[in-house]
Write a protein that binds this DNA or RNA. Structure first.
Lengths: 249, 249
DNA sequence: CAGCGCAAAATGTCTGACATTTATCGCCAG
DNA sequence: CTGGCGATAAATGTCAGACATTTTGCGCTG
């Protein structure tokens, strides 16, 4: 609701857009709120109005803002946000507290989509796809024990999932994989909290291995089942109905 | 490769972006080509350089163009295009000759995704979802015979598919449904060419009905099978492998 | 012939002004 | 007192020109 957190700015237009977007996604303004006017932002961040306009145009293109001449700028409803816009994906990177509703929706989507993608991958994967998958899996295995390598482990985990989308050899699914990256990252970090017990990482590794083996063997249905297993525990933890994959109101 | 087709311009920045995007998507320039410079476009379209810059920023955000200071503007590879950007969806509306590769990729995606979405819909659909589906289906049935109502029939067909995504009650799938709209439209129009024989429309209607019944009955697996049936014929016509859903290189 | 530097060309940014749209407030008539 | 109506203010949209920055290529020099 305020502009106070934003100090003077340094960087190009994209950087300013990123700052504003993250502030918005972080909850500084609620849907329906009026967004600060161009001149206020320009003054507060010590940049020209032009740069502010370009940045706001980006947020508008992503469906975050609604601007009308004379009225001003308002924050749109979450349902109007373009979650599949790659730019949005960038902005979500490293966001500390994404909205819980968003997290559940994303996981429900992945729980329904990734089995299918794994099935495609099992049938379409080429040598380099398998190489990527194996490299990611070996990385996961090598960093599974040491807790000080948690960051690296997460990276390999995300790379593994991204490689599955890549191996589907379908333009749309591959783009989906890229732009789900930050969401997957957030989910993986969330699901690896040690509070759940010590079987977590070992089990997770085993399940990822099952997916890899199924894809290597070209066994589509088994790959689908294995992919479902990988996401199953996280889904249950977050309260996503693993029967329906979505929750009716 | 040329700017000749573009006459003087009338409308706002979005309209200019639409014109340029459609010219590009229509094949006026190939990936790797250098795009006209700002001042040329501004002069040719009789608008300010500012407006051109805003329009080009939109195309750049959609992954169509790559701009670097000093070098100029170039058309990016098709693989880099943000097909899931809603703006791209707008630009694709009514495009006469989309790239065949794109069409195949999109159908392969739908062939893998829509069964899952139908399954979700069967389990999550509420009364208004069912009402939307039934309204679309009745419209399809009412316009199935008369060939002069082909346009309306297509509209109902697209609405039916969109309603399936809507009924999944998942944010991401719903957005996907919206932005697939133009692609579905193009595919439906393509698949309804009468050259294939007279059983086409009747069969199609019957198959859509099967999906509706399965969703109404809450039978997920049956809905998935039915959805696959709906897309099967079109997929085979376009040479998409209905075993793998994608084609390895 | 290699390397340096300068100039041209393109995009990126700043500034100020004006246009257009919208909400609001005060005025006037009923 | 109240409802409509117009002027005014406030915000975004557009334009024009200048300058900054980056890249490319050419020519000059050692």
């Amino acid at each position: 609701m305020s502009l106070e957190a934003l100090g003077p700015h340094q960087g190009d237009a994209d950087a300013l857009a990123r700052r504003l977007a993250r502030a918005l996604l972080g909850g500084d303004w609620q849907p329906g709120d009026v967004f600060p006017k161009e001149l206020d932002i320009a003054a507060r961040c010590a940049v020209s109005r032009n740069l502010v306009r370009n940045a706001l145009a980006s947020l508008t293109a992503a469906g975050l803002l609604e601007r009308t001449a004379g009225r001003g700028t308002r924050v749109r409803e979450v349902g109007d946000w373009h979650l599949l816009d790659p730019q949005m994906s960038d902005w979500l990177v490293g966001l500390a507290h994404p909205q819980p509703q968003l997290v559940r929706e994303l996981l429900a989507f992945r729980y329904s989509a990734e089995p299918v993608v794994a099935e495609l991958a099992a049938r379409a994967a080429g040598p380099d796809d398998l190489a990527r998958l194996e490299a990611a899996f070996r990385g996961m295995a090598a960093t599974a024990d040491a807790s000080e390598q948690a960051g690296q482990h997460v990276e390999y985990d995300v790379a593994f999932h991204e490689a599955i989308y890549e191996a589907s050899h379908n333009l749309i699914w591959r783009q989906m994989g890229h732009l789900l990256r930050p969401s997957i990252l957030a989910l993986v970090q969330h699901s690896q909290r040690p509070a759940r017990g010590d079987d977590g990482l070992g089990d997770s590794l085993e399940r990822h291995g099952a997916v890899l083996e199924a894809i290597k063997g070209g066994d589509g249905p088994r790959a689908a089942r294995a992919a479902r297993e990988v996401l199953g525990r996280t889904a249950r933890d977050l309260g996503v109905d693993t029967e329906t994959g979505a929750r009716a109101d």
